[in-house]
Write a protein that binds this DNA or RNA. Structure first.
Length: 342
DNA sequence: GAACCGTGGTT
DNA sequence: TAACCAAGGTT
């Protein structure tokens, strides 16, 4: 691992920030100002999600709920509808909870320190540091995937970034490097660097504004960084989706459990099947509907049912108009699309 | 600390 | 296509 002296650190800050001032993504909507509410909403949305995807959601969200008080007062249905399709829905519920804490418990007085921000639901080490530095000028490194990638290459840090304890290694190495005058811009500059000249695949390191600080590139081993162990592949699960209409043409849905995957969302009733032979002649599609989550792969066979008994306690019929007003997960939209095409 | 938690784009 | 990746947090 490299160790920079004070002069190198100061030169690095200067080169990084002058590049950021020239070529940083100042146009991103959440960089319009440093309102902590806007910063928090954007950071929650950006967790494990691409910038291009978030832009549309962010603008729509801010237009519907412009202040932390608007969000705190909003019904959860509205928040989830604004989040529909973004995934990781606990983020939306935690953001809603955090807004209630700030608006109601704290009367709009935002926590400004890293430690205090960490207490908000959905706010972990990265997000607390991002909000603290961007909105409140606190000098802390916002260690995300970009940060790991950029500094693993610059400093040749060999620790596996998939391991939780590695965060500490990076924190210790980089905390002294964060610019004390412009910590928020420093962190955002690292992100911009990490998605441009120092992106994951096919980087353009030679033309990077900080190429002269890049130890991995200097030594011809840049492609070995960051060190990251592999994820496990999603496990296949097969289901029948029960397709049942009532006399009004409304479709039967079932509420998912309050915890776990797609917690508390409505989908068609899903019944596990152990083998393909269990799907009988009533199936509605030639091919199954497939959907991949982060750790599971669903294979779904829609099967037409007769309207028989009354809906169970966790079931309800929804008309088409009611379905459109609901926040539904992507996999449910896929099922509906599959039915329409059959 | 490993497993869990969505979705869409890229290789 | 399967694997990998993208501004992580919670349990």
């Amino acid at each position: 691992m490299e160790n920079w002296d004070q002069q190198t650190i100061e030169n690095f800050r200067s080169d990084l920030l002058s590049w950021y001032d020239r070529e940083g993504r100042a146009h991103l909507p959440w960089r319009e100002n440093t309102d902590p509410y806007r910063v928090l909403v954007s950071e929650l949305m950006l967790q494990q999600t691409r910038v291009d995807t978030v832009i549309t959601y962010f603008n729509r969200f801010m237009k519907a709920l412009p202040t932390v008080f608007d969000l705190a007062k909003a019904p959860e249905d509205q928040v989830l509808k604004l989040w529909e399709g973004l995934g990781y829905y606990s983020r939306a519920r935690n953001l809603h909870k955090a807004a209630k804490v700030v608006a109601f418990d704290l009367k709009g007085a935002w926590p400004e320190s890293y430690e205090d921000l960490l207490t908000l639901p959905g706010v972990g080490p990265y997000t607390a540091a991002a909000v603290a530095s961007i909105a409140f000028n606190q000098v802390v490194p916002a260690i995300d995937g970009n940060f790991f990638r950029v500094f693993s290459r610059l400093l040749k840090i060999d620790a596996d970034i998939a391991k939780p304890k590695t965060r500490r290694v990076f924190y210790d190495a980089v905390a002294p490097i964060v610019d004390p005058k412009r910590p928020g811009d420093f962190n955002q500059a690292i992100m911009d660097l990490g998605t441009s000249y120092m992106k994951t695949s096919d980087p353009d390191t030679l033309h990077s504004p900080v190429v002269k600080y890049n130890a991995a590139y200097r030594d011809g081993v840049e492609d070995q960084y960051p060190v990251k162990s592999k994820k496990k592949k999603p496990v296949l699960e097969r289901y029948q989706a029960l397709v049942r209409y009532n006399e009004d043409g409304a479709l039967l849905y079932e509420k998912r459990p309050k915890t776990g995957l797609l917690a508390d969302f409505w989908t068609l009733p899903l019944r596990p099947i152990d083998s393909i032979e269990e799907v009988d002649g009533k199936q509605l599609t030639i091919k199954p509907i497939t959907h991949v989550f982060s750790h599971r792969k669903w294979e779904i066979w829609p099967v037409l049912q007769e309207e028989t008994a009354d809906p169970a306690q966790n079931q309800r019929y929804f008309t088409e108009a009611e379905q459109e007003a609901l926040a539904l997960p992507k996999v449910q939209h896929k099922i509906l699309q599959g039915l329409k095409e059959s």
